[in-house]
């Protein structure tokens, strides 16, 4: 930590993909450093990255910070909100003393599927968390998204990682909590504080890398009273509620996971409004033989 004006600043690089909250993590850290009277400089690249593209944010703090850009290979702490983004920036870290904190959650970009044949290998980074942790000085690979899902909201995975980050920096925990409380929307304060604590607990309990996250289930077929079938591909359903509200018979509902299901097969007339208006192609109306109808 920079105590004198001559010591170099501490460099934290936060990376992820658009929509995960990279900027939020860096803003909380920057605000906290300001509270402690340190100079902070933050710079980021975002924009076209909205929803799915690469985002990174440099945060540098210390008694005196001149440049907002971290020199290559001098990152003290690398926080990755997405697994392959973490690997992309590994060589920005200090080789010996750097700390690597990553979510093992994989957000696979379409470019990883150049080969469109069924069952083809994807081009996503094949390195396992264990192999990557071997390469870095101090490494933490946690399935923050699953931890966040356990708390009821996958969007707070960034706060789980913020909790893990807080253990790697010498600021008292009360400061983190008060900045976080001011920063997040009021109705999400409670769940964000829980997520923050879950991230700290995970590091302190010395957990090992999480296993591969399970993909959601495939298609669920319900047979309706008139002989046709309603097929809902759960892996594609995003729970937008359109089919539920547009169904003239009101026979669909969202289940406890927020996915569409046929709640009242007796009422379904097979009118296909749900299929037509599903933006995610998750609903299909099949005839009695399992063939799609027009």
């Amino acid at each position: 930590m920079a105590d004198t004006e001559t010591s170099p600043p501490t460099n934290v690089l936060i990376v992820g993909v658009g929509g995960q909250g990279v900027i939020m993590v860096s803003k909380v850290l920057a605000a906290l450093c300001q509270l402690h009277g340190l100079q902070v400089k933050q710079s980021e690249v975002h924009g076209m990255a909205k929803r799915g593209g690469s985002v990174f944010s440099h945060v540098r703090f210390g008694a005196q910070v001149w440049s907002p850009i971290i020199p290559h290979g001098e990152t003290d702490i690398l926080v990755a909100l997405e697994w392959s983004e973490g690997l992309r920036w590994l060589d920005a870290m200090r080789r010996d003393s750097g700390t690597f904190i990553a979510d093992t959650q994989q957000i696979v970009p379409p470019i990883a599927f150049r080969d469109r044949r069924p069952g083809a290998r994807s081009g996503y980074a094949p390195q396992s968390p264990a192999a990557v942790l071997e390469m870095v000085g101090t490494g933490f690979a946690l399935d923050a998204t699953r931890v966040a899902a356990g708390l009821g909201n996958t969007r707070i995975a960034n706060t789980v990682l913020l909790g893990a980050l807080s253990t790697a920096l010498p600021f008292p925990v009360e400061g983190w909590i008060s900045v976080l409380r001011d920063f997040v929307p009021p109705h999400t304060v409670a769940v964000n504080l829980k997520a923050f604590q879950a991230g700290r607990d995970w590091v302190e309990s010395g957990s090992r890398p999480a296993e591969e996250a399970a993909r959601p289930a495939g298609a669920r077929v319900a047979v309706a009273a008139r002989g046709h079938r309603l097929e809902i591909t759960e892996a594609w359903c995003k729970g937008c509620d359109i089919c539920v509200k547009m169904c003239p018979e009101r026979c669909l509902r969202l289940d406890e996971r927020g996915l569409a299901e046929l709640a009242n097969p007796a009422a379904c007339t097979g009118c296909r409004v749900c299929e037509w208006l599903c933006p995610d192609f998750a609903v299909r109306v099949l005839d009695g033989l399992g063939q799609p109808v027009a």
């Binding site: 469109r116 046709h228 359903c237 995003k238 097979g270 299909r284 005839d287 109808v293």
Partner: peptide
């Protein structure tokens, strides 16, 4: 079902299914 046309359109025949779910937001 007499109301259903026999001319079948299954959108999946025209989609790259391995890229789905697509990246668009819910709704």
């Amino acid at each position: 079902m007499d109301t259903l046309s026999l001319d079948t359109f299954d959108i999946r025949a025209y989609l790259r299914e391995d890229l789905l779910p697509h990246f668009m937001c819910p709704g």
